[in-house]
Design a protein around this nucleic acid. Sequence first.
DNA 1: GCATGTGAACACATTCACAGCA
DNA 2: TGCTGTGAATGTGTTCACATGC
Lengths: 238, 238
Amino acid sequence: MTSAGAAGRAPRGRIPEPTVARLPVYRRLLASLVAGRIRTVSSTELAAAAGVNAATLRRDLSHLGTYGTPGTGYDVVRLGEMVDRALALGRDWPIVIAGAGNLGRALARSRGFTTGGFRVVALVDVDPGQVGRTIEGVPIAHVEQLAELVVREGVALGVVATPASAAADVARRLADAGVRAILNFAPAVVPSPGGVLVRSVDLAAELQVLTFHLARARGEGASLGEEPPAGGTADRPQ
Amino acid sequence: MTSAGAAGRAPRGRIPEPTVARLPVYRRLLASLVAGRIRTVSSTELAAAAGVNAATLRRDLSHLGTYGTPGTGYDVVRLGEMVDRALALGRDWPIVIAGAGNLGRALARSRGFTTGGFRVVALVDVDPGQVGRTIEGVPIAHVEQLAELVVREGVALGVVATPASAAADVARRLADAGVRAILNFAPAVVPSPGGVLVRSVDLAAELQVLTFHLARARGEGASLGEEPPAGGTADRPQ
DNA sequence: GCATGTGAACACATTCACAGCA
DNA sequence: TGCTGTGAATGTGTTCACATGC
């Protein structure tokens, strides 16, 4: 065992994916506690704010190798640093966005893409009418300049905000250029080019999940439109 | 048991959440098969295109009460209709978007929000400078007009694209106005107002999940920066 | 022979409940 | 006493493997 110094206990093994997905939420909450000069927080409080079970929160933090104090809680600043370290934040993460359409331009301006170390260094597009313009100071380059750009700026993260028809091709270009992870917003299944990490966000799908649940709540969907006229209350209180 | 007519078998019980999240992907793939005049597809083929295991796909479809043909596969048109029905698509879904900033405007123009029955009837904002303008024909109204708008247009879906500080308040307004489900893009935990369904998409969090995995792939994150120089190959072949 | 639908096994994540410590 | 960290129980989803049917 390595010496467990004052900086925290060594974490164990891999971190479950659902835990990873919750870390950014904890991070945000911890940041606002720091801003509010709160020094300490219990798992019950933080879990309530995050909308998760307290045991789940403690389990999540235990994966990071936390050092909460029984009877007191967690040190807000320390915990925030641990979460940041787990997420590999607190360093520079240059990003290139492929596709300078509505979504690409909006993402280039969004706070989430321009804070916490993230920095949009360029957009790329195929449209010559776009190339050369800037969005909030960020230049739009031609897609042919991608490779040079990625190397020069040390870009590791690529964002795909093109039409679905172009997504797979541009993902391959990004991977070839040296990008190591891709966030895809195009409504297409993007095969991981060369083992590059791909994560997709499908805006239409999110809406469709909602309509699914709305129909369910109404008692539809169970059959082909024939449904015993529901006895009033819906099944799920939540 | 109800008579299992030609339209499909009756589905059983509730549908698991991960299955629901995959249905939109299947839907998209089926639509392109229809466009390509393909009549039939096997679970193996469709699963490969969707990037999931074939058994998972069959299990997913079985929740819908499918009627595939052993030895042949699924009828593309029929299956597409079943997925659409499960997602409650093929009807009109008016949407209101709260927040006419970069993201709200981009969403109002995005295809995912304007096809498949979805229709953005209005954006609302607090900024008087925005009110009265239109985005691609969609009017920007004042947030005070929300209630009237929701009732008049029969809006069931609300989208929150405001700063985090306004998200909870605007979600409450949407719920009070009669919206039954909310898609939240603000980086905030939005408590479900009055039992309304809330689903959140956090753009910054998506990037952070990627940086987590990039650091992991490099062998970081396991300790506090001290790491046995990895023996060459990474753990995960994928 | 080939592909569906599903019982059973497995893998994983969540939650309970409590020992242990401040 | 209060709260953490975690073994054990539970709940949930995925995958295998095959009986069934075309």
